[in-house]
Design a protein around this nucleic acid. Structure first.
Length: 598
DNA sequence: ATCTCAATACTGACCGCT
DNA sequence: GAGCGGTCAGTATTGAGA
C-alpha cells in the first residue's frame, strides 16, 4: 500500500486563510467545512465535525496517509470521507486546517507528565524511581540512619573528587555574580518545608516511576540514569573546540565507537573529509574574524571560504586539535568502514549526516545588517571567542573525565560540579552581552537565570553535537539515559528539528539572548526592561534571518516555534537531571539554586 | 478462487482538562 | 464555553491458512 507524507500534501496545498470561510453560525446550521457532516466547533482553525477533527489530528501526528488511487481528485462528503484518506487530508488542508494548532510532541509529553503527577497520590505512595536516592523516599523531616550515612558519603565523595580529579577551576558558588548574595546552602528539607508548591511539584514529578504505572506507554530503558548526562552537560557548557578535541583524541576509549556508529549517506569519503575540514575552517575563521571584530568594532562571522591558516588563534587550535586534512581523511576511512555496517547501525544516528550543516558560516550576512544589529552580533562573537580561550583546557579535561569515570556516582558528582561551569558561562554571557541585565534588580537577575537556564542549554545542544560530527554516539548514550523511550523519542524529534533548520552559531547565540530576556518568566518584577531588550533581540534575529537565510523566508517564524518548544523540552530536561542527581545537587548551593524557585 | 478468522488499523463520539 | 488531546467501542482492512 503506497503512502504519501503529510508534508508533501501540505506543500502541494497551501492552507487557506480560514477566516475567509463563512461564519458557521449562519451557514447551514454549522456544517463541517471539510465533509459537510454536522460540525462540532472550530478545530485546528476551521469549523469541522468530530470525525474530521480526529482524522486530522491522527494523520498529522502519524505523518503519512494512504495514497489516493484516483489522482487525488476524489469527491468527498460525509459518506465517502473514509474511502480516501489522502483526499480527506487535502480537503482538511484546503479548508484551512492548520497543523501548527496541534500540540507538539514535547507539549504532549509535558501534559502527560503533568497529569501523571496530578494523579499520583503524594502522601500515601512514596514516589519511587529505580535510580532514586533513598533519602528522597522518606518524608523530608524523617531522615533515616541510611539517609544520614549516604549524605556523609556524598559529602566525602565530593570532597575527594575535588581533590583528585583534574577539573581545573570548577567554580564554586563564589565564582560569579549575581550569585554572590545567594550561596547559602539550601537543604532538601528546607526546600520541602517552604511553601513553594512549584518546587514541590517539580521534585514530585521528577521522582515519579511512570513505567510501573503504565508500562505499555512509558518504559524505562536499561540505562543507569544520568551517566551520560554528565558528558552532555559538559558539551552544553562548551563551545566547539573542547568537544572537538575530545572526539578526535584517540586516547579516549570511545573514539572508535563514536565514528563507527556514524553512517555516511551518499557522500564519498573524500567529500566527507572536505565537509569536516570546512567546518574546522569555519571555526578557525570565526576566531580570526572575532579578533578582527573586537578590534574594528565590525561584526564579522565565520568564514569558511576565505580563512587562512596563519592566524595566531588557529595556530593554537592546531596545536591542540589535530584537525588537519590527514586526520579528517582518517576519520572518513573509519566512516567508510562503518558504511558496511550501516544497515544495523543507521537507525541509531540518522541525525548526523555529514554535510547537513552546510552553512556553518555566513560572513556576508552580518555585513548586511544595520550598525545596531552588527554591534549586537559582534559582541556575541567576541564573547564566544574569549570564553573558548579561557575555559578550553578546563572543559576538555572535564569532558574526558565525564567519559572515563566508571561509577555512576563519580559521574554525577562531576556533572553537578560542572553544572556550576554552565551556570557561570550563562551568567557571564548574560552580563557581557545582554546589557539590560545590569539594569535589573538583583532578584530579577537571579530569577532570569533560574527560569531560562535549561532552555539556554537545550537550544544549542543539537547543533553543537552535530557540528563536530561526533554527536551520534554521544547523543545515543545521552538519550538512553533520559529515562523513558517516549522522552527519548521526543528529544530525538527535537534534535532533528533543530538540525534540519541548518542554522549557524550566530543564530543560536541570538536565540539564547531571546531566551534569556523573555519577559514572561515567573517572579520577574522589572518586566518592562526585559520587554524592551526582548523586542530588540527579536528584531535583530528577524533581521539576521532575513540576510542569512534569504532562501528560507519562514526561518524566523520557525525559530519562534522552536523557542516555544524549547521551554517544554528544557523543563523536562531539568526534571530528568533532578531525578538522578537530587542528593548531589543539594550539596552544591549554586547548582541547587537553579531548582529553587522561591 | 473463495471463505474464515484473527490481528491490526482506522473511525468518531464522548470525555476531561486547560 | 471553546478547543485541545485521550479514550475506547465499533467498524474496516489485511493477511494467513484451510
Amino acid at each position: 500500500m503506497s503512502q504519501v507524507s503529510v508534508l508533501d500534501v501540505f506543500e502541494d496545498m497551501p492552507a487557506q486563510d480560514s477566516t475567509s470561510f463563512p461564519d458557521p453560525a449562519g451557514a447551514e446550521g454549522g456544517d463541517c467545512v471539510v465533509c459537510g457532516d454536522k460540525g462540532s466547533g472550530f478545530h485546528y482553525g476551521v469549523y469541522s465535525c468530530e470525525g474530521c477533527k480526529g482524522f486530522f489530528r491522527r494523520t498529522v501526528t502519524k505523518g503519512y496517509v494512504k495514497a489516493c488511487k484516483s489522482g487525488s481528485k476524489c469527491n468527498l462528503d460525509m459518506h465517502t470521507r473514509r474511502k480516501c484518506p489522502e483526499c480527506r487530508l487535502r480537503s482538511c488542508r484546503a479548508a484551512g486546517m492548520r497543523s501548527d494548532c496541534l500540540l507538539t510532541q514535547a507539549q504532549c509529553m509535558s501534559k502527560f507528565l503533568y497529569r501523571k503527577k496530578s494523579e499520583a497520590p503524594k502522601s500515601d505512595h512514596p514516589i519511587s524511581s529505580p535510580n532514586q536516592d533513598v533519602s528522597v523516599q522518606s518524608p523530608p523531616n524523617q531522615s533515616t540512619g541510611t539517609d544520614v550515612q549516604q549524605h556523609k558519603n556524598l559529602v566525602s565523595d565530593i570532597s575527594n573528587q575535588s581533590e583528585t580529579c583534574s577539573l581545573g577551576e570548577v567554580p564554586s558558588s563564589s565564582s560569579a555574580q549575581p550569585f554572590e548574595t545567594v550561596p547559602e546552602p539550601v537543604s532538601f528539607s528546607q526546600l520541602i518545608d517552604n511553601n513553594d508548591t512549584n518546587l514541590l511539584d517539580e521534585i514530585t514529578s521528577s521522582f515519579m516511576d511512570l513505567s510501573s504505572e503504565n508500562p505499555a506507554v512509558l518504559t524505562r530503558t536499561d540505562s543507569t540514569g544520568s551517566d551520560d548526562m554528565l558528558s552532555f552537560l559538559a558539551l552544553l557548557a562548551n563551545d566547539t573546540q573542547s568537544i572537538d578535541e575530545n572526539v578526535l583524541d584517540p586516547s579516549i576509549g570511545l573514539f572508535d565507537e563514536v565514528h563507527a556508529t556514524t553512517p555516511i549517506q551518499g557522500n564519498s569519503s573524500i567529500e566527507h573529509a572536505e565537509n569536516l575540514l570546512s567546518l574546522q575552517r569555519g571555526k578557525a575563521n570565526l576566531q580570526a574574524n572575532d579578533s578582527a571584530s573586537a578590534t574594528n568594532g565590525q561584526a564579522s562571522e565565520e568564514n569558511s571560504e576565505s580563512s587562512t591558516s596563519d592566524t595566531p588563534t588557529e595556530s593554537v587550535n592546531q596545536a591542540t586539535n589535530p584537525c588537519d586534512l590527514k586526520t579528517n581523511l582518517q576519520l572518513s576511512q573509519k566512516h567508510q568502514s562503518a558504511d558496511e555496517d550501516k544497515a544495523t547501525k543507521e537507525h541509531t544516528c540518522s541525525l548526523f549526516r555529514p554535510g547537513k550543516i552546510k552553512r556553518f558560516a555566513r560572513p556576508d550576512a552580518v555585513q548586511n545588517l544595520s550598525p545596531e544589529y552588527q554591534a549586537i552580533v559582534s559582541e556575541i562573537a567576541t564573547f564566544r571567542k574569549s570564553w573558548c580561550e579561557k575555559h578550553h583546557k578546563t572543559l576538555c579535561v572535564l569532558i574526558k573525565g565525564c567519559i572515563q569515570d566508571n561509577s555512576k556516582k563519580e559521574r554525577q558528582v562531576r556533572f553537578v560540579a560542572h553544572m556550576g561551569v554552565v551556570v557561570e558561562k550563562m551568567v557571564e554571557f548574560i552580563r557581557t552581552v545582554v546589557h539590560c541585565f545590569q539594569d535589573l534588580r538583583i532578584e530579577d537577575q537571579i530569577a532570569v537565570v533560574k527560569a531560562s537556564f535549561f532552555d539556554y542549554c537545550m537550544i544549542k545542544a543539537p547543533i553543537l553535537l552535530a557540528n563536530f560530527n561526533a554527536g551520534a554516539h554521544v547523543l545515543k548514550r545521552i538519550l538512553q539515559a533520559v529515562h523513558t523511550e517516549v522522552f527519548n523519542a521526543t528529544l530525538m524529534k527535537w534534535y532533528e528539528g533543530m538540525l534540519d533548520l541548518k542554522i549557524d552559531m550566530t543564530t543560536l547565540d541570538l536565540l539564547q539572548c531571546v531566551i534569556v530576556v523573555s519577559p514572561d518568566r515567573p517572579n520577574i518584577k522589572g518586566r518592562d526592561t526585559l520587554e524592551q531588550s526582548y523586542a530588540q533581540y527579536i528584531e535583530c534575529l528577524r533581521a539576521y534571518c532575513k540576510v542569512a537565510y534569504p532562501e528560507n523566508r519562514l526561518m524566523f517564524h520557525r525559530l519562534l516555534s522552536k523557542l516555544t518548544e524549547v521551554r517544554t523540552i528544557g523543563t523536562a530536561f531539568g526534571r530528568s537531571i533532578s531525578s538522578e542527581c537530587e542528593s548531589i545537587i543539594r550539596e552544591h548551593p549554586l547548582v541547587s539554586e537553579i531548582w529553587n524557585h522561591d
